[in-house]
Write a protein that binds this DNA or RNA. Structure first.
Length: 589
RNA sequence: UGGCCCGUCGUCUAAUGGCAGGACACCGGUCUUUGGAACCGGCGGUGGUGGUUCGAAUCCACCCGGGCCAACCA
């Protein structure tokens, strides 16, 4: 059987991954009465990134596909790192990605109930207040190979724990003086189960509850109970929480949570080549100024991808392409680029922009005259209509690298004596190369063939190359920012990630020229600059008199591939010659 | 080192004891007013060893390799 079960063999629509299999089975058995309820539980201590996109597509996707619900729940149990600003940014990013939550919740909505559960656990002897210091608790926990030792407070009377817990809440103790712990098994081979801390004292300002609380629940305590309170059926999280499932299930059982209880399922988080998705490390990049902010177009954050010009659809399609499984992975960066091009190809207009201008004078075209050409906005294979006027004049700019004085084999662009097509313009022939004192090519003098207007020759003459161009007089000066991968190495998570930053991750062409037709488009408009790549006008920095474009992704470039092959070939030849010479030399000697 | 999770083309992912399939990448070709796109073709995989079975990627055992866990983070 091929993998076409439930669709997804094309990689665009969600297929039948193991999570969806489980949900389908539960639906079939009527386990939750036909209900599917998921949640996306970000902690508001940083921005969402491409890895979260995978989780979002899964959480919201599974719910939507089954007529279920998906709550957005902020997991705000650590007031020291969380901020209201992140909450709004996260909500904006989720909506931008194309999803809407059923209900907006916060773990902090449940602080009172969570406290009551703590009391309940103490009352039934399943939790106790420990008065050991943080260091002592650590020392008592043992190691992965040695069992832990019970705290001397482990068997303190229930009433005493109850009293301490009440006074912890009342603010009678300093931070760290006491904690509430589950009484489970200090010798458990699963470290998580060695009497995990449930509540700690933390006199910090919480962005929602202010100073109402000075004790805060830990993740393991808050998460399963929040799921239960919200009636979540399938609690999806990443693989690093596999060990935590034991405490998840233990707590739901201890508090006699209503049946059927939510179940946790773990999937592999997304890792992408040449980038990192650790919030801690991303924050470091921002704080240390290695990038301009969370929304720097090189960042894997959703806001960074958005500013770079990536569409929500491209990200969703990418997540579909990647799939959901339990094996650790590191996805090929080319896969994301494919998803981006695949989406943009069908939706954005083509225009011409010259990044590194080289002046071209058409010697047989009259001075002061403008020939307005009508150029299509989309290629023949994109089912969208529209044209724009493009001015042709005596002085033009072409891309500097589209001319070579001494071209290698298979170079089809402009060279002395060669004829090329100016896209949607005329055929031109290079008659003369003008250089400065330093020998640098500063201008080309060319002739055009008036009979080739629009780009085809009535005599059937063919040219191999078509290049883009702009009118020197009409083109708008602009800045083009070429973004590349942020890291030089495939797996920057290994070793010192800062040492692996790519020094060429941003190359700016400050003196580029773009055709005038787009001058009045609003910032945030996407284009394909023909033969170059997909771009978006920068929403922060682009001004009418100073357009700024971010490269979203380059076009596939088979010429650089050919060049690489040629260079490798030449290098091999040179090596071979070197060997022969040495051999001859040896014989002679 | 104790426990748990995971090993399928280069990468990601299907297979639910019955023909190892798809996508990306790569290579070749067709077409082309983008060296784009599209289309056609090709390359290429079950970590190892035993066992169960008519039949094993799938079940069992052992080995090898990778990951997670010893925060009062999530």
């Amino acid at each position: 059987m091929s993998g076409d079960k439930g669709g997804g063999s094309d990689g665009r629509t969600p297929g039948r991954d193991f999570v969806r299999e489980i949900v389908a089975a539960d639906l079939a058995s009527g386990k939750h009465g036909g209900r599917v309820a998921t949640r996306f539980p970000p902690e508001p201590n940083g921005l969402l990134h491409i890895g979260h996109a995978k989780a979002i597509c899964l959480d919201f996707g599974v719910a939507a596909e089954n007529g279920g619900t998906c709550n957005l729940r902020f997991d705000d149990t650590n007031p020291e790192t969380e901020e209201a600003g992140y909450v709004e940014a996260i909500k904006r990013d989720i909506r931008w990605l194309g999803f809407e939550w059923s209900e907006l919740r916060h773990a902090s909505d449940y602080f009172e109930q969570l406290y009551d559960y703590g009391v309940h656990l103490i009352e039934k002897g399943s939790a106790y207040v420990d008065s050991l210091s943080e260091e002592e608790i650590r020392a008592h926990r043992g190691t992965v190979t040695e069992p832990g030792r019970p705290s001397p407070w482990r068997d303190r009377p229930l009433e005493e724990s109850l009293d301490f817990f009440r006074r912890m809440r009342a603010g009678e103790f300093e931070d760290g003086a006491h904690v509430l712990r589950a009484r489970i098994d200090m010798a458990s081979p699963n470290m998580i189960m060695r009497d995990p801390v449930l509540f700690r004292i933390r006199r910090a300002h919480h962005y929602r509850t202010g100073s109402e609380w000075c004790i805060y629940p830990m993740y393991d305590f808050a998460h399963c109970l929040s799921d239960s309170i919200e009636g979540i059926t399938h609690s999806l999280c990443t693989l690093e929480f596999v060990n935590n499932r034991a405490i998840y299930d233990w707590l739901l059982e201890e508090v006699e949570a209503p049946e059927p209880v939510p179940r946790q399922y773990e999937f592999a988080r997304l890792n992408l080549e040449y980038t990192i998705v650790s919030k801690r490390k991303l924050l470091r990049l921002v704080q240390d100024g290695h990038v301009s902010g969370w929304d720097d177009p090189r960042m894997p954050t959703l806001s960074g991808l958005r500013r770079r010009g990536v569409t929500p659809a491209a990200i969703r399609n990418f997540c579909g392409l990647v799939g959901v499984a339990k094996a650790d992975n590191r996805v090929d960066a080319a896969k994301l680029e494919y998803a981006i091009r695949d989406d943009l190809n069908m939706r954005v207009p083509r225009v011409m922009c010259v990044q590194r201008p080289l002046r071209v004078v058409i010697t047989n075209f009259p001075e002061g005259e403008t020939d307005w050409l009508d150029a299509p906005l989309y290629p023949h294979d994109v089912p969208l209509e529209g044209t724009r006027p493009v001015p042709f004049t005596r002085e033009l700019y072409i891309e500097r690298h589209d001319f070579m004085e001494d071209p290698p084999r298979r170079f089809f662009r402009l060279a002395p004596g060669r004829e090329v097509r100016l896209r949607y313009g005329y055929f031109i022939r290079c008659e003369e190369v003008v250089k400065d004192e330093a020998g640098e090519v500063v201008e080309l003098r060319c002739t055009y063939d008036p009979a080739t207007r629009g780009g085809s020759a009535p005599d059937g003459r063919k040219v191999r190359g078509t290049i883009h161009w702009v009118s020197a007089e009409h083109a708008r000066p602009c800045e083009v920012r070429l973004y590349d991968r942020l890291f030089r190495t495939r797996d920057p998570d290994r070793g010192d990630f800062l040492a692996q930053l790519n020094p060429d991750s941003l190359v700016v062409h400050a003196d580029a020229r773009v055709e005038p037709s787009i001058a009045d488009d609003p910032p945030g408009t996407r284009y394909q600059f023909e033969r170059v790549g997909y771009f978006i006008s920068d929403e922060e920095d682009s001004r009418p008199d100073r357009l700024v474009f971010n490269r979203t992704v380059g076009l596939r470039d088979s010429w650089v591939k050919i060049r690489k092959q040629q260079m490798a070939q030449e290098a091999r030849k040179a090596k071979g010659r070197g060997r022969k010479k040495r051999k001859r030399g040896k014989k002679r000697g």
